[in-house]
Computed example of a mutant assay.
Amino acid sequence: MASEREQRRQAYVEKTRSEVASLVERGVRMGGNAFSPVLLAKGELTPEEAAGAEPFSGPDGAALKASLKALGYAPEDWETLVAVDAAGAPLAPDLMRLAVATLDPATLICCDETATQAVRDAYAEELSGLEDLNEALLPAGMVAHVCGMRFLNLGGFAAALGDPRQKQIMWARLKQVPPLVEPY
Protein backbone atom coordinates (compact mmCIF):
# COMPACT_ATOMS: atom_id res chain seq x y z
CA MET A 1 0.00 0.00 0.00
CA ALA A 2 1.35 3.38 -1.02
CA SER A 3 1.99 5.93 1.69
CA GLU A 4 -0.04 9.11 1.85
CA ARG A 5 3.03 11.04 0.78
CA GLU A 6 3.53 8.81 -2.27
CA GLN A 7 -0.16 9.15 -3.16
CA ARG A 8 0.11 12.95 -3.05
CA ARG A 9 3.25 12.83 -5.15
CA GLN A 10 1.55 10.62 -7.74
CA ALA A 11 -1.50 12.92 -7.80
CA TYR A 12 0.80 15.89 -8.46
CA VAL A 13 2.56 14.05 -11.28
CA GLU A 14 -0.77 13.09 -12.86
CA LYS A 15 -2.08 16.66 -12.56
CA THR A 16 1.03 18.03 -14.27
CA ARG A 17 0.89 15.32 -16.95
CA SER A 18 -2.72 16.29 -17.70
CA GLU A 19 -1.95 20.02 -17.81
CA VAL A 20 1.04 19.50 -20.12
CA ALA A 21 -1.05 17.26 -22.41
CA SER A 22 -3.70 19.98 -22.58
CA LEU A 23 -1.08 22.55 -23.61
CA VAL A 24 0.33 20.20 -26.26
CA GLU A 25 -3.19 19.75 -27.65
CA ARG A 26 -3.33 23.55 -27.98
CA GLY A 27 -0.11 23.55 -30.00
CA VAL A 28 2.44 24.41 -27.32
CA ARG A 29 5.82 22.73 -27.81
CA MET A 30 7.75 21.84 -24.67
CA GLY A 31 10.51 19.46 -23.69
CA GLY A 32 12.77 18.43 -20.87
CA ASN A 33 11.84 17.87 -17.25
CA ALA A 34 8.51 19.52 -16.36
CA PHE A 35 9.59 19.73 -12.70
CA SER A 36 12.76 21.71 -13.38
CA PRO A 37 13.80 25.03 -11.85
CA VAL A 38 14.92 26.48 -15.22
CA LEU A 39 12.75 27.08 -18.27
CA LEU A 40 14.53 27.94 -21.54
CA ALA A 41 12.23 29.76 -23.98
CA LYS A 42 12.91 30.49 -27.63
CA GLY A 43 10.91 31.79 -30.53
CA GLU A 44 13.49 32.04 -33.27
CA LEU A 45 13.66 28.46 -34.49
CA THR A 46 16.17 26.75 -36.74
CA PRO A 47 14.69 25.28 -39.94
CA GLU A 48 14.97 21.84 -38.33
CA GLU A 49 13.12 22.96 -35.20
CA ALA A 50 10.45 24.67 -37.30
CA ALA A 51 9.99 21.35 -39.14
CA GLY A 52 9.44 19.52 -35.84
CA ALA A 53 12.89 18.73 -34.44
CA GLU A 54 13.26 18.87 -30.68
CA PRO A 55 13.77 22.50 -29.54
CA PHE A 56 17.31 23.26 -28.40
CA SER A 57 18.62 20.09 -30.07
CA GLY A 58 21.30 22.04 -31.94
CA PRO A 59 24.40 23.94 -30.86
CA ASP A 60 22.38 26.44 -28.79
CA GLY A 61 20.89 23.66 -26.68
CA ALA A 62 24.25 21.99 -26.16
CA ALA A 63 25.83 25.29 -25.14
CA LEU A 64 22.98 26.18 -22.78
CA LYS A 65 22.99 22.75 -21.12
CA ALA A 66 26.78 22.93 -20.67
CA SER A 67 26.44 26.43 -19.22
CA LEU A 68 23.73 25.35 -16.78
CA LYS A 69 25.87 22.39 -15.68
CA ALA A 70 28.87 24.71 -15.18
CA LEU A 71 26.67 26.94 -13.01
CA GLY A 72 25.81 23.98 -10.79
CA TYR A 73 22.47 22.82 -12.15
CA ALA A 74 21.93 19.07 -12.40
CA PRO A 75 21.80 17.74 -15.99
CA GLU A 76 18.05 17.17 -15.73
CA ASP A 77 17.32 20.63 -14.25
CA TRP A 78 16.02 22.30 -17.41
CA GLU A 79 12.89 22.38 -19.49
CA THR A 80 12.13 24.08 -22.80
CA LEU A 81 9.28 26.08 -24.25
CA VAL A 82 8.77 27.27 -27.82
CA ALA A 83 7.22 30.75 -27.71
CA VAL A 84 5.68 30.49 -31.20
CA ASP A 85 3.01 28.27 -32.70
CA ALA A 86 3.37 25.91 -35.66
CA ALA A 87 2.87 28.81 -38.08
CA GLY A 88 5.62 30.84 -36.40
CA ALA A 89 3.28 33.35 -34.74
CA PRO A 90 3.95 34.22 -31.09
CA LEU A 91 1.83 32.28 -28.62
CA ALA A 92 -1.15 34.26 -27.39
CA PRO A 93 -0.32 35.98 -24.09
CA ASP A 94 -2.81 33.88 -22.11
CA LEU A 95 -1.43 30.66 -23.59
CA MET A 96 2.18 31.70 -22.96
CA ARG A 97 1.32 32.60 -19.39
CA LEU A 98 -0.51 29.31 -18.87
CA ALA A 99 2.46 27.36 -20.23
CA VAL A 100 4.89 29.14 -17.91
CA ALA A 101 2.55 28.71 -14.94
CA THR A 102 2.11 25.02 -15.69
CA LEU A 103 5.86 24.42 -15.86
CA ASP A 104 6.33 26.67 -12.80
CA PRO A 105 10.07 27.40 -13.09
CA ALA A 106 12.06 29.40 -10.57
CA THR A 107 14.00 30.92 -13.48
CA LEU A 108 12.78 31.71 -17.00
CA ILE A 109 15.54 32.33 -19.53
CA CYS A 110 14.43 33.93 -22.79
CA CYS A 111 16.99 33.05 -25.42
CA ASP A 112 15.88 35.51 -28.11
CA GLU A 113 13.77 38.61 -28.67
CA THR A 114 10.73 36.66 -29.89
CA ALA A 115 10.53 34.70 -26.64
CA THR A 116 11.19 37.85 -24.61
CA GLN A 117 8.37 39.71 -26.34
CA ALA A 118 5.99 36.79 -25.70
CA VAL A 119 6.90 36.98 -22.00
CA ARG A 120 6.49 40.78 -21.97
CA ASP A 121 3.01 40.38 -23.45
CA ALA A 122 2.05 37.55 -21.08
CA TYR A 123 3.25 39.38 -17.96
CA ALA A 124 2.58 42.98 -19.02
CA GLU A 125 0.60 43.89 -15.91
CA GLU A 126 3.18 42.51 -13.49
CA LEU A 127 6.08 44.04 -15.41
CA SER A 128 4.38 47.43 -15.48
CA GLY A 129 4.12 47.26 -11.69
CA LEU A 130 7.87 46.98 -11.17
CA GLU A 131 9.50 50.04 -9.62
CA ASP A 132 12.45 50.00 -12.03
CA LEU A 133 11.21 50.85 -15.53
CA ASN A 134 14.38 49.48 -17.08
CA GLU A 135 13.82 46.13 -15.35
CA ALA A 136 10.17 46.16 -16.49
CA LEU A 137 11.26 46.33 -20.14
CA LEU A 138 13.25 43.08 -19.78
CA PRO A 139 16.34 44.38 -21.55
CA ALA A 140 19.03 41.90 -22.52
CA GLY A 141 21.21 40.99 -19.58
CA MET A 142 19.02 42.27 -16.75
CA VAL A 143 17.29 39.92 -14.31
CA ALA A 144 13.71 40.85 -13.39
CA HIS A 145 11.81 39.31 -10.49
CA VAL A 146 8.18 38.69 -11.43
CA CYS A 147 5.55 36.46 -9.81
CA GLY A 148 8.19 34.70 -7.74
CA MET A 149 10.35 33.92 -10.79
CA ARG A 150 13.59 35.30 -12.15
CA PHE A 151 13.28 36.40 -15.78
CA LEU A 152 16.44 36.78 -17.85
CA ASN A 153 16.55 37.96 -21.45
CA LEU A 154 19.78 36.63 -22.98
CA GLY A 155 19.32 38.74 -26.10
CA GLY A 156 20.08 36.41 -28.99
CA PHE A 157 21.86 33.39 -27.57
CA ALA A 158 21.96 31.27 -30.74
CA ALA A 159 23.31 34.15 -32.83
CA ALA A 160 26.05 34.81 -30.27
CA LEU A 161 27.58 31.35 -30.55
CA GLY A 162 29.67 32.28 -33.60
CA ASP A 163 31.41 35.22 -31.91
CA PRO A 164 33.80 34.60 -28.98
CA ARG A 165 33.12 38.05 -27.49
CA GLN A 166 29.35 37.57 -27.65
CA LYS A 167 29.70 34.10 -26.09
CA GLN A 168 31.50 35.74 -23.14
CA ILE A 169 28.63 38.21 -22.80
CA MET A 170 26.10 35.35 -22.78
CA TRP A 171 28.11 33.52 -20.13
CA ALA A 172 28.24 36.66 -17.96
CA ARG A 173 24.46 37.00 -18.29
CA LEU A 174 23.85 33.36 -17.39
CA LYS A 175 26.05 33.67 -14.29
CA GLN A 176 23.41 36.03 -12.87
CA VAL A 177 20.99 33.12 -12.40
CA PRO A 178 22.84 30.43 -10.45
CA PRO A 179 20.84 27.63 -8.87
CA LEU A 180 18.70 28.74 -5.97
CA VAL A 181 19.47 26.93 -2.76
CA GLU A 182 16.86 25.65 -0.38
CA PRO A 183 16.60 27.63 2.85
CA TYR A 184 17.73 25.71 5.90
Rank of each mutant, 00 (worst) to 15 (best):
I169E: 06
T102L: 04
Y123N: 01
V38W: 02
T46C: 02
L161C: 01
E182K: 14
A62Q: 06
T116N: 04
N153G: 09
K167C: 15
W78F: 15
E135V: 15
G88W: 05
G155V: 13
L91M: 08
L161K: 05
S36V: 12
Q10K: 10
A74D: 07
G162D: 10
K15E: 12
C111H: 08
K167Q: 15
R5N: 03
A83H: 06
P183D: 11
P164I: 04
Y12W: 07
G52W: 04
L40H: 04
E4W: 07
E6M: 10
C111Y: 06
E125F: 14
T102P: 01
L138V: 01
S57N: 06
A106Y: 08
K65P: 00
A87K: 14
A51V: 08
V38K: 02
P47S: 06
S36Q: 07
A144R: 07
A140F: 07
F151Y: 13
L68H: 10
P178C: 12
L23H: 01
P179W: 06
A74I: 01
V100F: 00
F157M: 07
D112C: 12
E4G: 10
S36M: 04
A124Q: 05
K65D: 02
Q10R: 11
Q7L: 15
G156M: 02
E19Q: 13
F35T: 13
E48A: 15
E14H: 10
F157K: 03
A140H: 02
V143F: 02
T107R: 02
Q10E: 06
P178S: 13
T114E: 00
A172I: 02
R150A: 12
F56L: 04
A160F: 01
S3Q: 00
A92D: 00
V84I: 05
N134K: 14
Q10Y: 03
A172K: 14
V119S: 00
A89S: 11
